[in-house]
Design a protein around this nucleic acid. Sequence first.
DNA 1: GCCGTTTTCGGCCCGACTGTTTTCAGTCG
Length: 570
Amino acid sequence: MENRAIADIFEEVADILDIKGENPFRIRSYRNAARTIGDMPSGVAGMIGAGEDIEKIPGIGKSIDEKIREIVSTGRLRFLEELRAGLPRGLTELLRIEGLGPKKVKLFHDELGIDTIDKLETAAREGRLRELFRMGGRSEENLLGAIARYREGRGRFKLSVALDYAESIVRYLREGTGVRAVEPAGSLRRRRETVGDIDILAICGPGSDIMDRFARYDAVEAVLAHGKTRSSARLTCGLQVDVRVLERESFGAALQYFTGSKEHNIALRTRAVDRKLKLSEYGVFKGARRVAGRSEKDVYASLGLPLIPPELRENRGEIEAAAEGRLPKLVGPGDIRGDLQMHTTATDGKDTVLDMARAARELGYEYIAVTEHSKAVRVARGLDEERLARHFREIERAEAAAGGIRILKGVEVDILPDGGLDLDDAILERCDVVVASVHYRFNMPEAEMTRRIIRGIGNPRVHILGHPTGRLVLERAPYEVDMAAVVRAAADLGVILEINAHPDRLDLNDAHARLAREGGVRLAVNTDAHSRAQLELMRYGLFVARRAWCEAEDVVNTYPLSRLLAGLRR
DNA sequence: GCCGTTTTCGGCCCGACTGTTTTCAGTCG
């Protein structure tokens, strides 16, 4: 039984208790437990099998411990089945509609028998909802809009898309009159792989035109709200952007608050309460007196903490680590000395080896590895043994011509369905860097895919496992693979796992990368660039590495060339 | 339901906004 499945069961329990109007703190306990289990890197089922004490995990007490054991041993939870018996299945789905919470779901169900989204839509269209207590025509309109958005299923955007817009809007707003500061916040600032909307905070002097200026931004499709302190607009791409104007005295507290995550903020406010303080978006208060708020650093300091990097603010142990002075020194762009996966005109890349090498040198790199596809990747005109050998001579010529950068001879060899590799050992022996990846036959059962990958990296010529789950952000689910088993194998074999920096891949994701790091596996952050310009996508991979708590030491392409090469030989 | 440097009971994060009201419940982040 997967952690995800156990977490989903507790989420459903919480949803039903919510609709039933149960004690909100009891409900929160179930939601906390769901999140804790969903985030855990190792399988709860396995831990129980190994005799570990689940009840020791914070947020899991006697009752939930017993329920987890029941789920793991029987695959079911009687408590949930009893709860379900009391109400129609569609009711919990109604909670997913924006603006609809447990109270209204219950009201609609009790008064009008609404238990599906279709019935809700009909009732709203027929104007029957406005008959109910505290409901009106406006509420019906809003619900119809929310239903439409829910059905469209949109709402999240890739970080790269949102970041491009956010950076452009921030630059644009900073040029306005009377604008003192503009900073993006939200999940964007935490560098989550997808974001739902963009939050921008500003400090303005008197007579500032910032809100009018924002409304005139050329990608704005519709202004949804236009006030003195908060404006909201939808861009033509569908992204919603909120701009808030704040007082300088509370800017740090607001930046902290709007950066989140919600879970991090709740934990932080609890810490404030423990210290007889109150934390809100306006500052840290002792009674009525503000003791911090101007900068984020002050806010954290007033709670006895160093500044916690935004990427870590997920309430996944960062507050405890900060309190104990063991926050990681996160890897950053300045640490990167090279890039270990890229493609050129020899296969499906747009630029030559020499162009790529010169562009990498411009970025200040000491080395790159050129890693063409192998022959199994037909669409990319992948190389066979003979063409790869000829390609190595081109690499040598390019290295001489580029001057001052080492071009490692590499390949991205396919891991075939049976776990064999797509090229002879003899040619792989001649490579400085062998990346092994899966590119087709994704729909295997988990056990088979896990065996395939572990056998693939078991070939001692392989140095790096490329994009280890094959997912494409918001487009293609990862293939089914037991990542904990792959991490154990990589640790035993000394194989490096890749964080593919391409913003469409970001694979490994943050949770898996952290699992790898904690399992003693080293990582490589590679762009998989197919053009010179794409070499600059490195930052997205670094965002993932940072969210995974990685330091420079965890990432092999921060090493000087000699250390890198010494570490690659197996 | 969980938790404990106010420790086995009595707490549990905070404030704004919306739409409906004439004083506020529900929802959101």
